[in-house]
Design a protein around this nucleic acid. Sequence first.
DNA 1: TATGAATGAGTATTCATTCAT
DNA 2: CATGAATGAATACTCATTCAT
Lengths: 195, 195, 195, 195
Amino acid sequence: MVISAQTPVRKPRADAERNRLKLLATAKDVFASKGMDVGLEEIARAAGVGIGTLYRHFPTREALIEQVYRNEANQLGAAAERLAAEHPPVEALRTWMLLFVEYFATKQIIAGALATMVGGRELYAVSSAQITQSIGLLTDRAIASGEIRLTVEPLDLLRAVIGVANVGAGPGWEAHARAMVDILIAGLRVPARSG
Amino acid sequence: MVISAQTPVRKPRADAERNRLKLLATAKDVFASKGMDVGLEEIARAAGVGIGTLYRHFPTREALIEQVYRNEANQLGAAAERLAAEHPPVEALRTWMLLFVEYFATKQIIAGALATMVGGRELYAVSSAQITQSIGLLTDRAIASGEIRLTVEPLDLLRAVIGVANVGAGPGWEAHARAMVDILIAGLRVPARSG
Amino acid sequence: MVISAQTPVRKPRADAERNRLKLLATAKDVFASKGMDVGLEEIARAAGVGIGTLYRHFPTREALIEQVYRNEANQLGAAAERLAAEHPPVEALRTWMLLFVEYFATKQIIAGALATMVGGRELYAVSSAQITQSIGLLTDRAIASGEIRLTVEPLDLLRAVIGVANVGAGPGWEAHARAMVDILIAGLRVPARSG
Amino acid sequence: MVISAQTPVRKPRADAERNRLKLLATAKDVFASKGMDVGLEEIARAAGVGIGTLYRHFPTREALIEQVYRNEANQLGAAAERLAAEHPPVEALRTWMLLFVEYFATKQIIAGALATMVGGRELYAVSSAQITQSIGLLTDRAIASGEIRLTVEPLDLLRAVIGVANVGAGPGWEAHARAMVDILIAGLRVPARSG
DNA sequence: TATGAATGAGTATTCATTCAT
DNA sequence: CATGAATGAATACTCATTCAT
């Protein structure tokens, strides 16, 4: 089936997917820089497509947001599995939390974005479930090892980190968020038996 | 019919202040339950006054928000001073952080509210400065005592707690937030010299 | 009925009238300086009374405006009669038109105020009728003398002057308005029979 | 059912421009009949479009007004040049002023509209400059010819006409405005040397 | 399939007017 | 009579979503 040769002028079907990816990437950037309240037209414009095209790919605003973060969540999920397989429990947990910080710092995803993602809203169920599973995997191992105990939900550790990154975050938030990871790990540690 | 003597049925002049307080209380609740994006008409309706009355007391949306939180910040500030005066440093810090949790839990102030407040926006400068000063006072004392060390800003401790309370907070967030306070305190502690 | 002696603390009844006059004067100034769209609260505040007091004296916005200008119209009406009695027809007309300019220039009444007043809206019927009568008196005499002819309504002469004063009036409008009076008078003159 | 070929029943892309023009025309009429204070929703409704459509074409109220009048000003500007080229100076001036009257009479643009336009507000800078230039061109020629003299700004001639048309204009204002043009021209004329 | 014009409900804010004190 | 708090209709403008081309 040699189709492509016959439709040289019209955009090849692959452009649909290209637009989709462009929109996701653009949406991430725009949400990060302008906040989660930006209008969708601005995102469409920044992506170089019409608003109609945005809606073709993402039928509601919330669908777009969901998709934007599902990606990131998937990558973090993969990292969690790898770290769990290759590192001692507490180190794996700590490293993944640092990765969590770095990952979003690098990707410029801050502000309401994270909150939204780790938030429990049903909209983001998929991303949220992914993250929940990742942190759960790592904390379970660490608890099983007897090195830490957990008096909060696993997700609360991330919520704390997000708080540092998010709530009135000034410059330097990333370093502080990393330091917070260590404070949290230290705070979770089961004290060594003295006797 | 001697009505006038005992029926404050008609709104007396004092009701201006009553309305003001009702509006502040209602706004706090509505912001908490519906998010910081609620329309002001909804707040006015919930307070049982006209939208014009709301605007008489709070000339802009932001003035309302500012006032809502300034109140709370002031009360927390007073508590910080009292605790610092009456308790050992780390205990004072821990107690105040628990108060911070409880206070807002009781008052139903969650969601973006806190974020906004501890956030750096100039609007909330007064509230924000108040909180910054309170936590700073308490951490300074605790650090000076040699019992803890701080690798993050004092405010980051609150940001972490807020994260737990805020980011996708489900039921039970309050217990978790309290537990988080202890995790943080534990994580800040300078380990006892073993030798 | 010697009442006044017995109520020394309460404001004497004369204050009602004083407030009325203060409101009229203030309203004139504020309309002049801020335009005809100012809020009534601003006028009340500038007059040093409550908005309720303003409404006691002037039951609607339009009643206030009417009253503000009725005063001025009365004074101009008196001047018209005097001029008609004491001066040759065309000179009386010209002088009164100059007075019309000067009067409002001095009183700072410009902008929409004049338009409103000479305008036909029923609201301002009284003021309007007064002015109509004044200019009518003067033009009738001048026409009767055979020195001018009139192809427009008498009021249109004032409308033209008002246009100069009003429509995008810059500094210097007063001199221009005066010059316009002379242009109009010249334009109305019946040419001298040459043969 | 071959519908597509001859039924522009559904709004085609070209209707964007059609809507734009409809809005401009409607706005002109509505401003004229209801005054410059009408709500934009009323204009949108009268034009048969949603308020959002109005805002798509004219992002602010002032943008709409500006556009409404720029149109008219341009057409008058073109007429001024043509008249200056083809007629004796004073006749050109007079004719253009009559056109000024007729044009706006025909187009139903009265009330504050003209005032606004010939007024100096920056918003209407373009329209205003256009008109200023047109009348300036015509008066310069007439003065140069020695037939008239000018003791006011050129624009004041239009202000006077506008006053007649505008200030409490009743029915018949158009005839009066035309008569006023002749009064003004007559008033500007340099008297013939008698000796 | 992509486009962007159209839609209209929703939002913050203003202001003339009323009414209880 | 004076006061000013309360009212709520009105207004300019925004934005998620739909739909004709």
